[in-house]
Design a protein around this nucleic acid. Structure first.
Length: 226
DNA sequence: AGATGATCATAT
DNA sequence: ATATGATCATCT
């Protein structure tokens, strides 16, 4: 019996919805949408993100695009501790491992998704029951030139290693603000990648993630701005 | 304790 | 298999 919430028509409308949602806890929001609150997130890791998508009218789906394509906005929920510090890295997008010769930064999924991000901080303290965790104030972030440069440099370094067939040598320690980590069903999941001799080989799928100190800076930068 | 590598659910 | 939504859980 849930009423479908339509996508917001403007950024103002999106922000208004997000501000109205701030201060609620997840139990209250779940009740509004008639969904059950899981007792933990072990088997429901994306539950919070999808609940908030529902409330804000994001287009559900698995398309590799921004959540609000017509507004140029990507939605990210981010778990934070009591002081507002992120508790986890932030997944951005899968990393392309094939057909990447000549792929430029401005054409990358990372570049497009991070043009503008609506961050929704949510209490993520593991000991706190899911339903009691509160939703924070939204932060609409457009990367500064310096921030984009940092991300771009990490992206280019990582993509070059991938192009050289060295994907398996890349660890999460590479990159100042953007890292490459496994992103798949499990460590047995395989996808095509480039071998050192230029042939095709199989590797675990990877994704790009933003490191915690970077997202922490973003959140704290906007904290006093209201 | 924090970060890295692994994993879970679902849609297409 | 690949994309979305991410957090879990082990290692250092």
């Amino acid at each position: 019996m849930k009423s479908k919430i339509l996508p917001p028509e403007s950024i103002d409308e999106l922000m208004h919805r997000a501000q109205e949602m701030a201060g609620l806890n997840l139990g209250q929001l779940a009740e509004i949408h008639n969904v059950a609150v899981p007792s933990n997130l072990k088997r429901d890791k994306g539950w919070i993100g999808q609940l908030i998508e529902l409330e804000l009218g994001a287009t559900a789906g698995s398309k590799p695009e921004q959540d609000f394509l017509h507004l140029g906005v990507e939605l990210k929920t981010i778990p934070v501790d009591e002081s507002g510090k992120p508790l986890e890295t932030t997944y951005v997008t899968v990393a392309p491992l094939m057909n990447i010769n000549g792929l430029r930064w401005q054409e990358s999924l990372v570049y497009h998704k991070l043009q503008r991000v609506l961050w929704i901080p949510v209490e993520g303290i593991r000991q706190k029951p899911i339903g009691e965790r509160r939703i924070g104030s939204p932060i609409l972030w457009t990367p500064s030139e310096a921030e984009m440069t940092q991300i771009r440099q990490d992206w280019e370094e990582i993509m070059e290693l991938i192009a050289l067939g060295k994907v398996e040598q890349i660890t999460a320690r590479h990159g100042e603000v953007l890292q490459l980590r496994p992103k798949g069903a499990n460590s047995r999941a395989l996808t095509q990648s480039i071998a050192q001799d230029g042939q095709v080989k199989l590797t675990n799928p990877r994704g790009f993630y933003l490191k915690i100190p970077f997202t922490q800076q973003i959140l704290s930068r906007y904290l006093t701005a209201n």
